[in-house]
Design a protein around this nucleic acid. Structure first.
Length: 490
RNA sequence: CGGGGCGUAGCGCAGUCCGGUAGCGCAUCUGCUUUGGGAGCAGAGGGUCGCAGGUUCAAAUCCUGUCGCCCCGACCA
C-alpha cells in the first residue's frame, strides 16, 4: 500500500530515510549533512519544544539566548572540553566576499583578528557570561535554558539522528553547592524521562555514562537511553554534572555565607531534534510514520466524500458540525477538503504522515448519522454514530498514546537480554541485538576491548538497575559490582 | 579518510556498452467523465543531459580533469 516505502525487513536504514521523505518531515539541503526541516517536521518539533519548555518553566527555569559565535580562545579554556569538540568545529575566518572572475571569493583583507567558532555547545560563552552575573551566594542558583541551533562538523550524517546543524535546547545552571548541582542534574534527567515516556511514548532507561562516554568537561553524565525497533540503542538525552570545571576555567566565584570565596557548581542538559529520529524508529511501520497523539501536529483528520455539489453541501455541513465539536474539546483536528485529491489518496497520504485518527464522512454516513473512524496505529476501522464519535475521540487518543507506549515497552522487553559470558554476549548481540545486561570490571580498557571486538558500547549504568547483583566481568573475570547495559548504538 | 552508488524535465528513472532528431512514469496545465482505499480518457507545457576541456562532420554517449550529493564503515548527540 505504501508504495514508496522500503520495508524495514529489507533495509531498515532505507526505510528510515523513506519515512522522513514520504511523511514530509525533512529533506536534504544542498549542503552536505544538513537538512531542511519541512512544516510537518517542524510542527512536530514545535509540539515537543512546547511540552518541554513548559516542564522547564515549571521547574523554575527561564529562557535566554546566547550568541552563535564563540571566540576561539574560549574553547581552549577547559582542557577536556576543547579536546572533545576540537575535531568538529566550524570556524569563521573572514567577514567579506568580493567579486572574482568566476563569481565571488573570500576577501583576504577581511580576515578576522580573532577567529570565531560556530557553537557546538554553549558552555564556554555562557560561563564567560555567568562570571559577570555572579558575585554572591544570593545570585545563585542561576537556572537558564536556551533554544538554539548548534553546529558539529560530523563526518557521517543521518537525517535528524545526526546532522551538521541541529536544533536543541541546552540548560545551563549554576549552584552554590555540589549537592544542589547534582540534584539539579538528576531532576532534569527525570524531566527528560517523563517527556520521553509520557509525550513521545518512548520508554527509556535512565542511567549514568561511563568515563569514556562522558560529556567533554563533565564530572558525570546522566542519560536516557531508548531502544529502536531494529535493536540498536539511541541516546535520547543527556544531563551533565559539570562539577566546578567550568567555574574554574572561567573563574566564576561567589562569596558564600561564611564570607569565603568559592567556585560555582554547574550543570548542563540537552535534547535535540534527534528525538524526532527516535520517535520515528520507536513507533512507525512499513506504511509510514506513526505519531503519538500528544505530539502529533494533527490528531484527527476528517475526509469528506461526495459525488456532486448537493452531496458536498450535506457532507460538509455535517463535517463542520463534528469539527466544531472536536475543536471545542481542544483537539487538533483538520478537515482535508482539497478537491484535487480523491478520498483514497488522502487516506494513504495521512497514513504515511502518521495522523493518529481519521474520520471519513460520506453521504451514507450523513444519511445514517454515522462516521467511519480509523486508527493509524492498529489500522482498524469502525463505524460509529456522530454522537459516539464526539464522545470517544478524546479517550481513544489517550488509549492510542498508552498503547504505543505499551507496544514499545513490550518490544524493548523482548529485545533485552541478560548474559553471563562473553561468548553468549557476542552471540546475542549478533542474533538479536537489543539491550544486553552483563558484568563488567569497571575499567576503560575492558570497555574499549569490547567496543573494538563487537561494536557494542556501555550505554549506561542504570540508575534503577534490575541487575544489581555482584559477579565477575564477562571478559576478564575480575569482580564486578553490578551488571551494566550494553548495546550497539546510533 | 576508505568502500560503493548517483548527477538527464519539479520528482523518480531509461538512454551511455555500440556517437547520429533527448525519452518514459509520476507531478503540472486545459477539457470531459469521475469521487466509500493512491481515478480514467483526450490534449498541452516543461531540458544549457553536474561543470570544464578534448576527440569527431556529429557527444547525454568516447577520453581527461573537476565539483557535488547519497549510502556503507572509521569518529560523534
Amino acid at each position: 500500500m505504501a508504495k514508496n516505502i522500503t520495508p524495514r525487513e529489507k533495509d531498515y536504514s532505507q526505510w528510515y530515510i523513506d519515512i522522513v521523505k514520504e511523511a514530509q518531515l525533512a529533506e536534504h539541503s544542498p549542503v552536505r549533512g544538513s537538512m531542511v526541516i519541512k512544516p510537518n517536521g517542524y510542527s512536530l518539533w514545535e509540539n515537543m519544544r512546547d511540552a518541554l519548555d513548559k516542564m522547564f518553566k515549571e521547574t523554575g527555569h527561564q529562557n535566554a539566548y546566547f550568541p552563535l559565535f564563540i571566540p576561539k580562545s574560549f574553547l581552549s579554556k577547559e582542557a577536556k572540553h576543547v579536546e572533545g569538540f576540537a575535531k568538529e568545529c566550524a570556524v569563521v575566518t573572514h567577514s567579506r566576499l568580493i567579486n572574482t572572475e568566476d563569481g565571488v571569493g573570500v576577501d583576504p583583507s577581511s580576515k578576522l583578528e580573532e577567529e570565531l567558532i560556530v557553537r557546538p555547545t554553549s558552555e564556554t560563552i555562557i560561563w564567560d557570561t555567568y562570571r559577570g552575573w555572579i558575585q554572591s551566594h544570593r545570585d545563585l542558583p542561576i537556572l537558564i535554558n536556551q533554544w538554539a541551533n548548534v553546529v558539529r562538523w560530523e563526518m557521517r550524517t543521518r537525517l535528524f539522528l545526526r546532522t551538521m546543524e541541529f536544533l536543541w535546547q541546552e540548560g545551563h545552571t549554576a549552584h552554590a553547592t555540589r549537592e544542589e548541582a547534582i540534584e539539579e542534574t538528576e531532576k532534569m534527567l527525570e524531566v527528560y524521562r517523563v517527556f520521553a515516556e509520557e509525550f513521545m511514548a518512548m520508554p527509556v532507561i535512565t542511567g549514568v555514562k561511563t568515563e569514556s562516554e562522558r560529556f567533554a568537561g563533565a564530572e558525570n553524565t546522566y542519560c536516557i537511553e531508548a531502544l529502536m525497533q531494529d535493536g540498536k540503542a539511541l541516546q535520547a538525552g543527556t544531563s551533565h554534572f559539570l562539577g566546578q570545571n567550568f567555574a574554574k576555567a572561567f573563574d566564576v566565584t561567589f562569596q558564600d555565607k561564611d564570607g569565603g570565596l568559592k567556585h560555582v557548581w554547574a550543570t548542563s542538559w540537552g535534547v535535540s531534534t534527534r528525538l524526532i529520529g527516535g520517535l520515528i524508529m520507536t513507533h512507525s511501520d512499513d506504511d509510514g510514520l506513526i505519531l503519538p497523539p500528544k505530539l502529533a501536529p494533527t490528531q484527527i483528520v476528517m475526509v469528506p466524500i461526495f459525488k456532486n455539489d448537493e452531496e458536498k453541501a450535506k457532507v460538509m455541513a455535517y463535517i463542520d458540525e463534528v469539527y466544531a465539536a472536536l475543536k471545542s474539546q481542544g483537539l487538533r483536528v483538520k478537515v482535508d477538503d482539497r478537491e484535487q485529491y480523491k478520498p483514497g489518496w488522502k487516506f494513504a497520504q495521512h497514513e504515511v504522515e502518521g495522523v493518529p485518527l481519521r474520520v471519513a464522512v460520506g453521504p451514507r454516513d450523513v444519511e445514517n448519522g454515522n462516521a467511519e473512524l480509523a486508527r493509524r496505529d492498529t489500522k482498524t476501522k469502525q463505524v460509529v454514530t456522530k454522537d459516539e464519535l464526539i464522545q470517544i475521540v478524546k479517550p481513544l487518543l489517550d488509549e492510542i498514546q498508552q498503547s504505543l507506549f505499551n507496544r514499545a515497552v513490550e518490544h524493548r522487553t523482548n529485545l533485552t537480554s541478560v548474559v553471563s559470558s562473553y561468548e553468549e554476549f557476542k552471540e546475542v548481540l549478533d542474533s538479536k541485538g537489543g539491550f544486553i545486561y552483563a558484568h563488567w570490571d569497571g575499567t576503560p580498557e575492558t570497555e574499549a576491548k569490547i567496543k573494538d571486538e563487537t561494536k557494542a558500547t556501555i550505554r549506561c549504568i542504570p540508575l534503577d538497575n534490575p541487575h544489581k547483583e555482584t559477579g565477575f566481568c564477562m571478559v576478564t573475570g575480575k569482580p564486578s559490582e553490578q551488571m551494566v547495559l550494553f548495546a550497539r548504538a546510533y
